[in-house]
Amino acid sequence: MTKVHVRSIGVLAPGLPGWEAARSVARGELPLERAAITPPVPRCLPAAERRRSSPTARLAIAVAEQAIDAAAIPAADMEMVFAASEAAGEITHQLCEVLAGTREISPTVFHNSVHNAPLGYLSIAMGAKLSGTSVCRGRWSFAAGLLCAALQAQAARRPVLYVCYDSPMPVPLQAACPMVDPTAVAMVLAPERIDAALASASLEIVEADVEREWPAWIPPSWHANPSARGLAALGAFAAAKGMARVPFAPGQALEIRC
């Protein structure tokens, strides 16, 4: 078991433009009204990087910006953990399509293809020079990344920016990995309780198969997105003494108790 303090939360998904909206939906006060997400434009990226970066990177950075702003802690003072199943589906597709044809890869597409590209862009844009780790654990990526980030906050005695994101998979990859909507969640975690903490949570691994358990408000079309497990867990942070169980491994769940 470990303890973590959540200083702020950022959310981006169709119908969920930020934490305020997501909290009301997670509490059941308002229904989710899905609206096509406006492609997010991260403020911190200079124009050249905005053009060069992938839509996935822009999604991750935009949701991270929400959490950083709400935390009122400079990104340069935080360590970073980014979690995603796919580095960037649209880049993988572009790359593999070119490799099956002319094989003339663009250098920008190649460096955008690394799993840590969104983290790299954010680090460059915000001058964040502390530890930055890009992690994956397949469909368990949200819970695995959250625990990794919490342990990092504890070990470093510093705030950690945690971001988990997925963007739609292009055809034909979508047939094998049916991610159709962008979903993303970001949190600033702190090792010690701060006055402005939004919630304090204990994290514990328990034996439980919760792979098929979803809050009713999460659209089934999001179930393929590992980061949607982060949205499903928001209920734990949205109310006093909230609790959520998110899949952590086959037959295991990460229990989040606030």
Binding site: E86, H115, N116, L119, T133, S134, C136, R137, G138, G251
Partner: peptide, 26 residues
């Protein structure tokens, strides 16, 4: 294809079930 595929394979092959992670920072 998944970045985590080899990690999950190694877990199963070794028969271990502790917390695991794939890191992909180039």
């Amino acid at each position: 294809h998944d970045m985590d595929a080899t990690t999950e394979l190694v877990r199963r092959f070794l028969g271990v079930s502790g917390p695991s992670l794939t890191i992909s920072t180039a």
